[in-house]
Amino acid sequence: MIYLIEDIINGILMGSIYGLTALGLTVIFGVLKVINFAHGSLLMVGMYVAYWIITATGIHPYIALFIAAPIMFFFGYYLQDIIIKPIFKAEKNVREPITVIIVTTGLWYILDNLTLLIFGPQYRSIQDNALKGAMLEIGEIFISVPKLCGAITAVITALAIYLFFQKTKTGRAVRATSIDRETASLMGINQYKIYNIAFGIGTAAAGIAAVTLVPFYNIFPTVGVLFDIKGFIIVVLGGLGSILGAMLGGIIIGLIESVGPQFMSSTWTEAIVYGLFLLVLFIKPSGLFGIKQDW
């Protein structure tokens, strides 16, 4: 029983971090109407950025967050501005341009292979960080401190992005563009700049997720692929474009992964995750909770 409670708690915590990894995907989709296949790679880049900041300076991972997140914002901003925007302009009249999806797939390969070339295939981890292996003990229940910190960060990030969209001038412009880009341009909104900003926010969210992961996760060039697939499953479960849906979808995956092995072998939990994914696609493509874009 104790183990079950512990698994549920850790499932929710890890699930919130999964939600955070999918947050950027859902934001970018909401505005650009394009699935960003490079999202896992952005997360991977974020992990390397976080890794280098932390090992080079020796600062606490969560202080590194305040350096990594802005770096990742600008990385995403200019990635969209320089590489993706020209494709968008060429396909001006298409609402969901396929060629952009192909470009993001290309980005995925380029980023992963470039990382492999520069940093090599070896697994890295941050050995002596304050959070590594730290456990919180409540009665007989053990809770992983880095996961707890990650989950709290996930909730704060989701809330911050939501409030930014609701309360700021730029946030409103992002929402307007996501609803109707042509009419937004009649308001004086430069839609391509909004795409840059949305891509920047999505990439920064991936960067924040990366920082929460590095204290307890291995870093290697293809690490993003794992999260890529999870990210797609999460946003489909939660409803494409929904922030709350991404968090809830993440928690569901986290719970299945953590509680499942109590009852079955862990290869089965993976089967359940994919099965649920297909089931939702077949029966309720708008997502498990039917939440539409909520910002």
Partner: peptide, 19 residues
Amino acid sequence: RKLFSLMTVKENLIIGAYN
């Protein structure tokens, strides 16, 4: 009309004053 459907009336007005 082309209003921003998922935004409130007031938000639609405010975004009109974006320039």
